[in-house]
Design a protein around this nucleic acid. Structure first.
Ligand SMILES: [Zn+2]
Ligand SMILES: [Zn+2]
Ligand SMILES: [Zn+2]
Ligand SMILES: [Zn+2]
Lengths: 144, 144
DNA sequence: AGCCTTTATGATACAGAGAATCACCGCACC
DNA sequence: GGTGCGGTGATTCTCTGTATCATAAAGGCT
């Protein structure tokens, strides 16, 4: 009953859709999922949850700190399980693969710049867009 | 006739709306403007340019390299004059003020991380969100 | 300048992501 | 097992931004 009680702790009833979506994140190969991704995945699993519910649950989970939301250039928001460690993202414009990274030096420099301007950082977003190693060799197989 | 010939060089006719929008950017106090911002500003100046035209012209100017587009968390795209130097942005969640900054060290570290993953960066976006100095003292006048 | 072809404009319709509505449903507590 | 309140899902609405299309205006040519 860990999952159900976790939901109750944050004031959310342990309903079918919520547990299903939470489990989907825990068992998914791809960490970063959009509302549409989740909707399609559930449909292919014969689970029928309305798109409105998915949007609602994702928002609630984000506010509860269970999920973290990101906005890549794709235009649609993606969510991932909040497992404590902050990290930033590299997005391949070829295949869409998302790679996570964390650089304490960059984090420190951001704080330093903010301090220089008397700015109190609450949040930040750093996305690198480009071509992953696979997509590069796929486009120029000879090179390397 | 510098502006007009500049437009012609990139294959765009030097029309009224295009010149007006370009001049608006050059004379604006605020560097970062959304389509809606421009539309309202022009309306208050008794200039009537359709919103569709503004969106179209902004897209063309971005493709021509005259403007650079950014997506802050606000949800709407903002544009600024492309004056050569790349920079990143700090956005105040209180008053919306945008502060620009450039840190060669952060840029270098991004490249290093990409290289470590065999990733070829084409573009990146770094936004810091928080409270500017003014908004902080406005909320807590005693402190400082 | 006046004509003519090409491109631009602007009103409006359309699209896509996501939030709001609201009647119905089902979990939790008794 | 009833009852009430929160949850659900079909649908509608909102908000950015794009596509359409008839009309207008650039700019090259004479
Ligand atoms: Zn790739
Ligand atoms: Zn991540
Ligand atoms: Zn501020
Ligand atoms: Zn800027």
């Amino acid at each position: 009953m860990s999952k159900a009680s976790h939901l109750k702790d944050i004031g959310l009833k342990a309903t079918g859709p919520r547990l299903t979506i939470l489990e989907l994140f825990e068992n998914s190969e791809t960490r970063h999922l959009s509302a549409e991704d989740i909707y399609r995945k559930l449909l292919s699993d014969e689970v029928d949850i309305g798109l409105a519910t998915i949007y609602r649950v994702l928002t609630q989970f984000e506010q509860a700190g269970i999920l973290v939301r990101h906005h890549f250039e794709s235009g649609k928001a993606v969510y991932e399980l909040n497992q404590g460690g902050h990290h930033d993202h590299m997005v391949c414009v070829g295949c869409g693969t998302v790679t996570e990274f964390f650089d304490p030096e960059i984090e420190r420099l951001q704080e330093r710049i903010a301090k220089q301007h008397g700015f109190a950082i609450q949040d930040h977003s750093l996305y690198l867009y480009g071509e992953c190693a696979e997509c590069q060799s796929r486009r120029a197989p000879g090179k390397r």
